[in-house]
Design a protein around this nucleic acid. Structure first.
Lengths: 346, 346
DNA sequence: TTGTACGCGTTATCAG
DNA sequence: CTGATAACGCGTACAA
């Protein structure tokens, strides 16, 4: 239906080769006169080259795939935006996929993306991996994986956030504020980020000669409901004066529950999050947290991918992004006395 | 590089036509024996058809474009997820574009999408339209526009949220709760949704014989910063007992500012939002709001688009989605006395 | 400076 | 039941 290069050639009275050249700015070959004439017809006819046909020749689609568990997770929404921005700036388009953290969906998407001839894939892998299964898939396009190891065969690179240091810095800060008994309300135990953050947690304790108490680590889900329910259903040990939450959503749930239990934040207990989602600063009290530069994360991942696609390989294979401690209102120095009831005013 | 239909044909000792048939399940033509043999080779070689080549023939890419202002706006993140889910369920892929509410970017994206031969586009148009400019573009693929009129030439349909009724219901509820002086903190005046919500606001007032006071309508931005700053920088008229906010983000900002001014919500003043973003229920107090089914919005828009693409046109051209009043904690009946200071306990 | 002709990987038609 | 072959729209050596 739509107008093709052939139509333009006919209308301009030239060959398709000539049209092709002016379309692609290979017009060092073409006389000014015909160039202008052809261009005019192109504009008049509102001609747009069919990129499918072009891709068949050039073997590149200028399209990359993005697979994430769920955009609705605030961490991934920023990441997705960063990824899209970088893609656009480099002239690429982004195919958008949500895996819901299930490996089968992820593989399904990878297949589709490969069939659609994407030039590469940015993959925030789903939680449960299956090494044996994955290794059977040799993906023919470059993959940049985020935060999680994946086992597909093929060219790969990884971009990671330094969760160990992030958690370490958070705990170190709490310790410096006088806290010793710090509850760690984590997400799923199996996830790499949970493991790394636990390592950072232990490390900071150890450096400060505070014994590690396994009972102070609780695994749950990276959702506000988990934080809320845990607090509602459990009595906190007397000695706990701070809670380090696996992410901001958990922290927000915790704060909500504490409010309903009339426990003051940060007066009675300090709360830290992880992520720095946009609501961390809207909440009352504003959340002290470890900022993950999720926008940059997505941006850099796509940049790495495009570098690989375009053959710029002079970068290391593993790229690490630093977190940043954001101190706001939900944390405070530990009070010298034990929690008391003598001070209920706001 | 990768294995093609030709390779499979050679390996299986059949023609490419035969391979094509078993790939596409047109195998009513093929003997069971060869079908199995060919399938075996396909599996062994991990063959994936090149969908570019296929699309050139079939004139369909099974890909649609989604253009939204910004995924980071919670309303659009849910919408995007709904869109993707519907696309996937129908065997389509989604090309993901953020226009930042600027028309030029939007047009750029449309051009790219058309070049990539998408089968259709779901477009949440940017704020400032330019009828003359748009009408010069005849988009050759179907467009389903969301919430906002667009003027591109071509096959079109619209999916809208009934903002008039949504706002009306909200104000009606406040009035029934005894409020009469209701401040409306809206977003940008030029936007269709702002206009529609204002209509609903006026309508509810009128129905209840409450005179409309133009000073009670303030236009700003659909961001929490607007709500926060407005409250911080302005003294509310004594008589105002409720604020209807243009969206939840504004409402969250308002509540934050009120807290810092020691004004209690909902005791001293009732606050309503619009959208029902996930944080509305995490916030303290939980936000009373008008739920926009944004996930469904995206889902239905893509469904409509695919219906058009696949020639199922037996649906009306304009599709309207209803909102839902969600009553939580940030609103309360108006107290009979004027605001007093005799009651500062929690 | 411009045009011819081939090929990219597939589907669809039609002959065998 | 199976296989040649044209066609899809374009880019590019190579010929003119």
């Amino acid at each position: 239906m739509s107008v093709t290069i052939k139509d333009i050639a006919r209308l301009a009275g030239v060959s398709i080769a000539t049209v092709s050249k002016v379309v692609n700015n290979k017009d060092f070959d073409i006389s000014e006169g015909t160039r202008v004439r052809v261009q005019k017809i192109i504009d008049e006819e509102n001609y747009r080259p069919n990129s499918l046909a072009r891709s068949m020749i050039t073997k590149t689609t200028k399209t990359v795939g993005l697979i994430i568990p769920d955009v609705r997770n605030p961490f991934f929404t920023d990441l997705a935006r960063g990824a899209e921005d970088c893609a656009k700036e480099n002239g690429y388009s982004l195919l958008f996929c949500n895996s819901d953290d299930v490996l089968e969906k992820e593989i399904e998407y990878i297949n589709t993306l490969v069939e659609k001839q994407v030039d590469g894939i940015v993959l925030a892998g789903s939680i449960n991996r299956n090494k044996a299964l994955e290794e059977k898939y040799s993906v023919t396009v470059p993959i940049v994986s985020l935060d999680r190891k994946v086992y597909f065969k093929g060219i790969q690179a990884t971009v990671e956030i330094d969760n160990v240091t992030g958690a370490h810095d958070a705990i170190e800060y709490l310790i410096q504020s006088g806290h010793k008994d710090i509850l760690f309300l984590s997400g799923q135990e199996e996830v790499d980020i949970s493991k790394d953050r636990l390592i950072g947690y232990k490390k900071a304790l150890e450096e400060n000669h505070i014994p590690f108490n396994p009972k102070c680590v609780i695994f749950g889900l990276y959702k506000s409901e988990f934080g809320y329910q845990y607090i509602m259903e459990n009595d906190l040990p007397k000695e706990v004066t701070a809670i380090f939450c696996g992410n901001d959503l958990i922290a927000l749930g915790v704060i909500k529950a504490l409010k309903s239990k009339k426990i003051k934040v940060p007066k009675d207990i300090s709360i830290m999050g992880f992520d720095d989602i946009s609501l961390a600063s809207i909440n009352t009290p504003e959340l002290t947290t470890v900022k993950q530069p999720s926008y940059e994360f997505g941006y850099i991942a796509v940049q790495r991918l495009i570098d690989i696609i375009e053959g710029i390989t002079n970068r290391k294979d593993k790229f690490e992004i630093k977190t940043e401690l954001i101190i706001r209102e939900s944390t405070a120095p530990r009070r010298n006395d034990t929690k008391s009831d003598d001070d209920v005013a706001e």
